[in-house]
Nucleic acid binder design. Structure first.
Lengths: 159, 159
DNA sequence: CTGTATCCTTAAAGATACTG
DNA sequence: CAGTATCTTTAAGGATACAG
């Protein structure tokens, strides 16, 4: 990072999402939270992260409304909020991508439904309910687009 | 990051995915590539990234097999490979999360199908074809899990 | 056990000049 | 236009000691 540009200014939801959770530790902490980890010490041992960094990350996640501190202040538990839980599809999609392309076909971890049956690969689904292939997905300006963004996207979006 | 631990050692697909694409610029470059950007200069202007950084990131992405250099060596075009295109669901999921939680309901950009109709929010879908709520998704050890990972996940995974 | 406070190292990012 | 080569800055991360 170092002297990094502020991603949250880029007028892009992806950039904002990354600004909120855009480093390794943050997403891995969220993953641990999904796994049921809640204690400071458990995060620390699970991830091998330095205590001060973990402290800062947890505070940032609470600040961002992704985690919530619960229980006794002296010995709190960190749990996902709704905002945090809604990261699940992105997390699973990333994990599946890693499974397929970076784990040589031997995934250390798989996402399942409540019955323990592996879920489908996450897909982009059209309004009509059909899977949309990656090269068919288009990114178009939304209501929050600036003129600059709009011009850029329309110029480049023609394919 | 500075003296960072090597994420690719964590035996976690998410960590490996993050190790491959785990910084802001990388994902934003991939996003631009989805938008049709292919030229060095266009990436540079679009993102406001320093030339040397862009150069390094593009090389890393090519090296990781996410982008491919095509056309004349003197004036190449960077295009997504299949591995790159398969990041789309994760990218869209992250973008939608940013839309909902970080863009005050005015998304600068929306994902649509080929007809320009906004796609559904990305969901985790069970083998049987039903949406799985975030708190119903379970993460279980896969074939590549080490004993340590397995023990950890089973201990924490009980909910 | 859950942090906070320091100190230190290092690598990531920026700026910029230069080359093919 | 598409990079490479330097140089500098800065902040992220690690280690560790200390506090409640």
């Amino acid at each position: 990072m170092a002297a990094k540009t502020d991603l949250s200014k880029l007028n892009c939801s992806l950039a904002r999402a990354l600004a909120a959770v855009g480093d390794w530790w943050t997403l891995l902490i969220v993953r641990d939270a999904f796994l049921g980890v809640g204690r400071f010490g458990d995060f620390q041992r699970s991830l091998g992260i330095a205590r001060n960094i973990l402290s800062a990350r947890l505070a940032a996640l609470v600040d961002a409304g992704i985690l919530a501190r619960r229980g006794s202040p002296a010995r709190p538990t960190y749990g996902l909020t709704e905002k945090g839980r809604e990261m699940m599809p992105a997390l699973v999609a990333l994990m599946q991508w890693g499974d397929k392309w970076e784990s040589a076909g031997r995934p250390p971890m798989i996402a399942t439904d409540a019955d323990g049956v592996a879920v489908r690969p996450v897909q982009v689904i059209s309004r009509a309910g059909k899977a949309v292939a990656a090269d068919q997905v288009r990114l178009l300006p939304g209501p929050g687009a600036t003129k600059r963004t709009r011009d850029f996207m329309l110029a480049k979006g023609r394919r």
